[in-house]
């Protein structure tokens, strides 16, 4: 085995979408990085802000419309029309969450607390906050700061750093 010459030192993850799968992609990568001892910063923007908004964070959904990879349990295609029926999206989302719980993947708030406990940092985007009329007190208490994109780039410097957009 050859030894990795330039291991990652820092990752800056941007979460711009608020569906279960988009948010969890960011959270799994962030927590995974923290667990590897990599400096980790997660920047939530646009609909991704739902993941760090007290009111919404544990109420995320998976979209049931316009997702060709969506399947019924058993593997049959999931008809888009079915996804339009009230309650279906909530049911699908609940199923996603229960499947994740089985793999010991925590709810959003707990996941953020785990990242925070390991030294990972959580940030919110100022522009999107202004757009959605959100205030600091609407956000999860662990959010470290509200940043402009310029401030985010200032934090993203240094060798062996990656910016990941999900």
């Amino acid at each position: 085995m050859t030894k990795e010459e330039f291991p990652l030192k820092k990752v800056c993850i941007i979460c711009a979408k608020g569906t279960i799968e988009d948010v969890y992609a960011s959270l799994v990568m962030a927590n995974g990085a923290v667990m590897e001892g990599i400096e980790t910063k997660v920047f939530f923007t646009f609909f991704g802000l739902d993941a760090i908004t007290k009111k919404q964070m544990n109420n995320l959904h998976t979209g049931t419309i316009g997702n060709p990879a969506m399947r019924m349990p058993g593997g049959l295609p999931f008809p888009t029309l079915l996804g339009m029926i009230p309650g279906v999206e909530a049911g699908v989302s609940m199923m996603m969450k229960s499947q994740m719980e089985k793999l010991d993947i925590p709810p959003v708030k707990e996941f953020l607390e785990m990242i925070d406990a390991g030294g990972g940092e959580i940030y919110a985007c100022k522009l999107a906050m202004d757009m959605f009329k959100l205030k600091k007190e609407d956000l999860w208490d662990g959010v470290k700061d509200i940043l402009t994109i310029g401030q985010f780039y200032e934090m993203a410097g240094g060798l062996q750093t990656q910016i990941i957009f999900t």
Binding site: I105, P106, M114, A117
Partner: peptide, 14 residues
């Protein structure tokens, strides 16, 4: 998982 260690009652994640 790291979560299970945190829930072990021995130590929290921090």
């Amino acid at each position: 998982t790291i979560r299970s260690v945190g829930n072990s009652g021995i130590v929290d994640i921090k």
